[in-house]
Amino acid sequence: MNQNNWERFEPYSNILWLHYTLDKAITALRYKNIQTKIHKEYISKLKQIKNDIFNYNSVKEFVLNNF
């Protein structure tokens, strides 16, 4: 997206970082009690956000539309 030019501000790059962070929270972190209802509920919410995040042009836009 930014052709590896991190000097220039590109709001969409924050979307990419958020997507990456969500992916790691879902797939790479080790959680205790993964069989609990609350764990499953919040992992599902994280997955939904991860799937939807590319519909936005910036994290600000995402936050303003969802919170």
Rank of each mutant, 00 (worst) to 15 (best):
I53N: 13
Q48H: 07
N57Q: 13
K47M: 13
I34Q: 12
T21W: 06
E41G: 02
Y42E: 11
T21P: 01
I43D: 06
N55Q: 15
N57D: 15
K37E: 14
N51W: 05
T21K: 08
P11R: 02
K45A: 09
I26Q: 00
F9E: 15
I49Q: 01
N5S: 08
L16G: 02
M1C: 05
L16E: 02
I38E: 07
E61L: 13
L29R: 12
W17P: 00
I34E: 02
W17C: 11
L46T: 02
Y20Q: 08
E10H: 15
N2R: 15
F67G: 01
I53C: 03
K47T: 04
F9D: 07
F67D: 03
P11N: 13
K50E: 06
I38Y: 11
N66S: 01
N65R: 12
N5L: 11
M1F: 13
L29Y: 15
N66L: 05
N55R: 05
K24F: 05
K24T: 11
S13G: 09
T27W: 01
A28V: 10
L64N: 04
I38A: 07
L64E: 04
I49W: 00
N55I: 07
R30W: 05
S58R: 00
H19R: 12
I26L: 05
I43Y: 03
H19G: 09
E7I: 14
D23V: 07
L29K: 08
N66A: 10
E10R: 02
R30K: 07
T36V: 02
K50P: 03
Y20R: 14
Y31P: 00
N4L: 09
H39N: 01
I15F: 09
K45I: 06
Y31G: 00
S13P: 15
I43L: 09
T27Q: 08
I26R: 01
Q3C: 11
Q35L: 07
K32V: 07
Y31Q: 13
N51S: 15
N55G: 12
Y20A: 07
F54Y: 12
D23I: 06
L22M: 03
